[in-house]
């Protein structure tokens, strides 16, 4: 009975297996990126970038229909353009990164909406906005896996300067020139993972599988590597449970995954061992030293 509910869908249906593979790939790559977004106080930057991707994806959609490959390429280009322009403007002028990003993503979003409303009135467009992880073909799955692999490799390369830049940017500037490139590479990874996410979850929810697991991890550890591990696990569990939930009920898969993650998040806020609410309300007697 339990087997039928929890494992059955995946042994029985190939599309469920593909979806599970995709969501695990997303978890492996997206969650670490989310942790860094959160620690660098850029959680909403991810959200902004998700909107910035829209015109590229829309152009890809117009050119070749619901071809996820074309939409991914378009999304990547749009995202990179916005991320790099915003990063360059912020670094070469006094403007703060968030302000310059807000400008560029709003322009991008306006362009995207314009393109969509001129040409696309298709119901398929819902797929762009909300994704469909249950419709993964081989090609798309490979793209997702490829992007996830690239992400992990690049993250390993820039890990050290990225961490130091997050803690003490001025120090990194005085000892190395790696800070700027590391930051830009990180922004690029954010874009890659957002595009990856919107295959499965849509542009609007793509950020969810990055930020929610990071938020969860923050409540369970004070150590960066442990935090990243917890975030990946939380994302993978949310993905799996969301797929099961979606299969057994009529909840669409994307929202189901994010809803499961948000349940985990609420539990973490309440019971988390690092700054959780219950722990704060009943901290126990204070220690001797």
């Amino acid at each position: 009975m339990l087997y039928d509910a929890l494992i059955g869908p995946f042994t029985e249906f190939e599309f469920m297996r593909r979806a599970l593979a995709a969501v695990i790939a997303l978890a492996l790559a997206g969650a670490p990126i989310g942790v860094f977004l959160m620690l660098r106080r850029m959680s909403l930057v991810g959200d902004a970038m998700a909107h910035a991707i829209l015109p590229g994806a829309a152009i890809g959609f117009l050119l070749s229909g619901l071809n996820l490959f074309a939409m991914t390429a378009g999304g990547l280009i749009a995202g990179f353009v916005v991320a790099i322009l915003a990063g360059v403007v912020a670094r070469s002028t006094g403007l703060k990164e968030d302000a310059s990003l807000a400008t560029f993503y709003l322009v991008s979003l306006a362009l995207g909406v314009t393109i969509v409303s001129i040409k696309g009135t298709n119901i398929d467009l819902l797929h762009v906005l909300f994704g469909n992880i249950l419709a993964m073909d081989d090609q798309t799955l490979l793209v997702v896996a490829f992007n996830a692999t690239i992400t992990l490799v690049v993250l390993a390369v820039i890990y050290r300067p990225l961490v130091i830049e997050s803690v003490d940017p001025l120090f990194l500037r005085t000892v190395s020139r790696a800070g700027g490139p590391a930051h830009l590479a990180f922004l690029a990874l954010v874009v890659v993972n957002l595009v990856n996410g919107f295959q499965a979850l849509g542009t609007l929810l793509a950020v969810g599988l990055m930020i929610l697991p990071a938020g969860i991890a923050r409540f369970w550890s004070r150590d960066l590597t442990v935090m990243i591990s917890i975030a990946v696990a939380a994302a993978a569990v949310s993905g799996y449970a969301g797929l099961v939930l979606s299969f057994q009920t009529r909840v669409p898969s994307g929202p189901a995954i994010i809803l499961v993650a948000s349940v985990l998040y609420v539990v973490s806020v309440l019971f988390g061992s690092v700054g959780g609410l219950i722990r704060q309300m009943f901290p126990g007697r204070h220690l001797e030293a």
């Binding site: 997050s166 803690v167 003490d168 001025l170 550890s221 004070r222 150590d223 960066l224 935090m227």
Partner: peptide, 12 residues
Amino acid sequence: PQTADIDRSFPI
């Protein structure tokens, strides 16, 4: 530096 621009909340 005089005012080190250090994010003390970063888990390190």
